[in-house]
Design a protein around this nucleic acid. Structure first.
Lengths: 257, 257
DNA sequence: TAGTGGTCTAGACCACTGG
DNA sequence: CAGTGGTCTAGACCACTAT
């Protein structure tokens, strides 16, 4: 063993990664195709298998390559984006399919929803602030959903409603929420959505999210914290979306001034 | 050498990563503090240094840890987000500081801009489509800027304007764009912004972006493709923002219906 | 069972940081 | 110069996939 024999300028793993990246970008290695095996790469470039593996990992972290245990390493394919529209809560869509269903179908994907929970809970601070409730003394209804497209999990969605608002409505039950969804029920009890506020960030997924969404390496998530504001300028519902960034995008169209 | 001595269930690197993650989440290792050195971790958990290093890399990829050559590994600190508002082009801000300056100052940061280029170019296909120009026969003015906050690069911004529109305006020169910026000049020549469309995605940075933004591992970027539409419903400008996701967020507030 | 990636080891030398 | 991470090696065994 021992150190690198020729420590010129660029590390071998980066040099090999760059070479493979070039072959991918030129289309010589097409999207979806299998890369040479790590042992082949190692012997081709005269490096240790560990180093070849490191090169592949670099490409994985860039979101270019998918590693699959026992199968091989593959050039990532881009999948159609589910586009969450800023107008998804518009009344013009009332009576029709839910926003997620509509957005999935626009992308040519088959939607499915799983209700994970609907329970009384203490709101996380960041949620309590936006709802204007006290995170110690007041509770909320928390509804957790997992959204699938073509049977793959793509969105983790948590909705929070002040308990005082949700109590006594059908929303507290762990099942689908009926015609026009949550917002239909909230309108039934006097909260008409007039304004929404959406705060968007991106980050790497945490451990739980990586698991729930079965995320491969090099896949960030988009996080949207959505606040619904009613006719009295009061927030009455906050939803936190965590979206696989390689499967979801956002679209806002708005008038200026 | 040889294989893992006790290949029970979880790999050692993941087990150690989980242990360190726990100490970070409990606050035992505070934000900004230095982790034990890899050699210390290795002897503490009785693993090879390579394995300790792998554990650290896992945490880096989660965006939890920053590796610094020669200095040590550190718990990531969260920095204040620059919030790009959906209303940044509103007339109510005319005559004041530029949107970036305003947003930086709101976050307590010092803004700076560098004009990288202003030149006639062939538009990338994705831009040409949105501008409604032919990417082969028509050219555009491409202006590239790099935005800094507290002297660190945080946004790479490329603006594209059909050459037919930009020709003869001061925008073709490689310098600041004057009062009310690009949109002031475009309004001078008859294009009044009435609607904007913003398409948001997140992904890992490519090689160039990683370099320009000096991005550490585990840092995704937010990409916004912004289209300005004028009083005739014609797109007249497209801007592609690439934002360090750990330093920037987006904020949209809009009326429903 | 063959092939592929997943992971680990023990040691070595390089490169960067900071006193 | 001491300490820390960056990277590499050669080999080994495990776990998963596909036949």
């Amino acid at each position: 063993m021992g150190g690198n024999l020729s420590a010129q300028d660029e590390p071998a793993s980066k040099r090999v990664a760059a070479a493979l990246r070039g072959r991918i970008e030129k289309g010589e290695l097409a999207a979806g195709s299998k890369l040479p095996s790590e042992r082949e790469i190692a012997s081709e470039y005269e490096i240790a298998r560990t180093t070849a593996s490191a090169a592949i990992r670099l490409l994985e972290q860039e979101g270019l390559v998918l590693r699959q245990h026992g199968r091989g390493n593959f050039v990532r394919e881009t999948s159609p984006l589910i586009r969450l529209g800023g107008d998804r809560y518009s009344r013009k869509y009332r009576g029709g399919p839910t926003p997620f269903r509509r957005e999935c179908e626009r992308a040519g994907l088959t939607p499915r929803v799983e209700v994970l929970a609907a329970e009384q809970a203490r709101p996380p601070i960041e949620i309590a602030q936006r709802l204007g409730v006290d995170s110690f003394t007041e509770s909320v209804l928390q509804r957790s959903n997992l959204y699938f497209a073509d049977d793959e999990p793509v969105q983790v969605v948590n909705t929070y409603i002040p308990w005082a608002v949700a109590e006594g409505t059908p929303l507290v039950e762990r099942k689908q929420t009926g015609k026009d969804g949550i917002y239909g029920r909230l309108e039934d009890c006097g909260h008409i959505m007039t304004t929404i506020r959406e705060e968007v960030t991106a980050r790497m997924p945490d451990h739980r999210e990586r698991e729930m969404l079965a995320l491969p390496g090099g896949t960030p998530v988009l996080q949207v914290i959505h606040t619904s504001i009613d006719q009295n300028q009061s927030p009455f519902e906050v939803t936190r979306f965590v979206l696989r960034a390689d499967r979801n995008g956002l679209l806002y169209q708005l008038a200026v001034d």
